[in-house]
Amino acid sequence: MPKRFVFVVRQPPYSGARNAEMLDQILAAAAFDLAVDVLFLDDGVWHLQSGQSPQNAGLRRFAPMLQTLELYDVREIAVEAESLEERALAAEKLILPVRCLARIDIPDWIAGHEIAVSCG
């Protein structure tokens, strides 16, 4: 059976080159037609906030890049429901369709993978 990857994103956007580099690593696995899931936790969920316009801060937009997750058949884009709630974010207003997982179900969900990678 092919190995299932999960990438866990906990850092907010605009964390320097890290954002693009974490996406490169996720997509590298996806490019091999592997089963790849991404989990946004804690401040990582801020990546999914709609309406980000960092141009006036002199920063590059990252949200469009994240949309390539869908293009390359990343299997599941999951977020933790509590992480959204704590930040007053609504799942249906995010920039990508996501699967919401309750905090209590996170350990079992992660345990269903063969390779876990922290992306900061």
Binding site: A20, D24, L27, A28, A30, A31, F32, R60, R61, P64, M65, Q67, T68, L71, Y72
Partner: peptide
């Protein structure tokens, strides 16, 4: 234009 990012060769 859509993703504001270039893919690698494989992608």
């Amino acid at each position: 234009r859509r993703y504001e990012y270039l893919p690698n060769a494989r992608l």
